[in-house]
């Protein structure tokens, strides 16, 4: 079954892109979930959609557009992330307020650009729900670069990110530059979202960042173990989702999320089973 994916160029790009996002999405998702910022991924994915719509509009209406939807989405996502950070400092006591502001802003802009580009078409549908055949070679290389940046940054700032996520006050008092680390983190999130959207789609990208983490959280002992398990679950979901989506002619976003939910349900029942067994042994 996997043979098709390795034989055809466009599928091979999709497959390896899938492997990369199955790694970086849950990796960053682990930090997002423990910081209770799961909805930020949603807000940013909608801003990315606005960027993509803007890119599609340019492609259609302005001849010889230099910027493809992927790059305009990426740019919007990063700008949106910086904007969220700003809003969170303005509304210190209502940090979650930044999320609906950015989310509705993203949807509003998307609608405007989509209608300017003469309404919905298959391109937009692919961006909303993901597509297995949409990765160009250029996109693929950009995603490789993004993945390297993510892995490098998380590796380098792992202890600072973990310390900040666990207890922000303690981190600040001990002399960590929380604001800078925070900004770095949110920009990385924006990059991951922009990279993942081609395959999982705008509406489901946050699922790939949070569901594997939700599943591993119940089983892992310690933060590092949780991250490793999340990545394993993320990869399992992406590989099964991509292949089944391709053979069933369904957008991979849907199949990847369904597989993630199955993994989540399994992890909940495994935990319950272990718990019951433990009770009996007592």
């Amino acid at each position: 079954m996997i043979a098709d994916f390795l034989e055809f160029d466009f599928l091979r790009h999709t497959f390896f892109t899938g492997l990369l996002i199955g790694l970086i999405a849950p990796l960053l998702g682990a930090f997002i979930v423990v910081r209770r910022l799961s909805l930020i991924a949603d807000a940013l994915s909608h801003v990315t959609l606005a960027g993509i719509a803007f890119g599609l509009f340019l492609e259609k209406k302005v001849l010889g557009a230099i910027i493809t939807p992927f790059y305009s989405g990426l740019t919007f996502s990063v700008i949106g992330s910086i904007f969220i950070e700003k809003l969170r400092t303005v509304y210190k006591d209502y940090q979650e307020l930044a999320i609906p502001i950015i989310l509705s802003g993203g949807v509003g802009l998307s609608v405007i650009f989509i209608s300017l580009a003469n309404g919905f078409n298959t391109d937009i549908f692919n961006y909303l729900f993901g597509s297995a055949s949409a990765i160009s070679q250029k996109d693929f290389f950009t995603i490789i670069v993004i993945s390297i940046i993510i892995l490098f940054s998380i590796g380098l700032f792992y202890k600072e990110l973990m310390t900040l996520s666990f207890d922000e006050e303690h981190a600040t008092v001990s002399g960590i530059h929380s604001k800078r680390i925070h900004l770095l983190f949110i920009v990385l999130t924006a990059l991951v979202i922009a990279a993942s959207i081609r395959i999982v789609g705008v509406l489901l990208v946050s699922a790939l960042m949070t569901l594997p983490v939700a599943a591993s959280m119940r089983l892992a002992r310690g933060f590092k173990q949780m991250i490793i398990l999340s990545i394993i679950f993320g990869e399992a979901a992406v590989i099964t989702g991509l292949i089944s989506g391709y053979y069933l002619s369904m957008p991979p976003g849907g199949t990847i999320v369904v597989v993630s939910i199955i993994i989540l349900l399994l992890s909940i029942s495994v935990k319950r089973f272990n718990f019951k067994r433990g009770e009996l042994e007592k």
């Binding site: 423990v34 973990m162 310390t163 001990s174 960590i176 310690g222 949780m226």
Partner: peptide, 14 residues
């Protein structure tokens, strides 16, 4: 989900 070891190691981060 941090272990005691991980929490204490955070005291060394800075």
């Amino acid at each position: 989900p941090a272990t005691v070891f991980e929490v204490v190691s955070m005291g060394l981060t800075a």
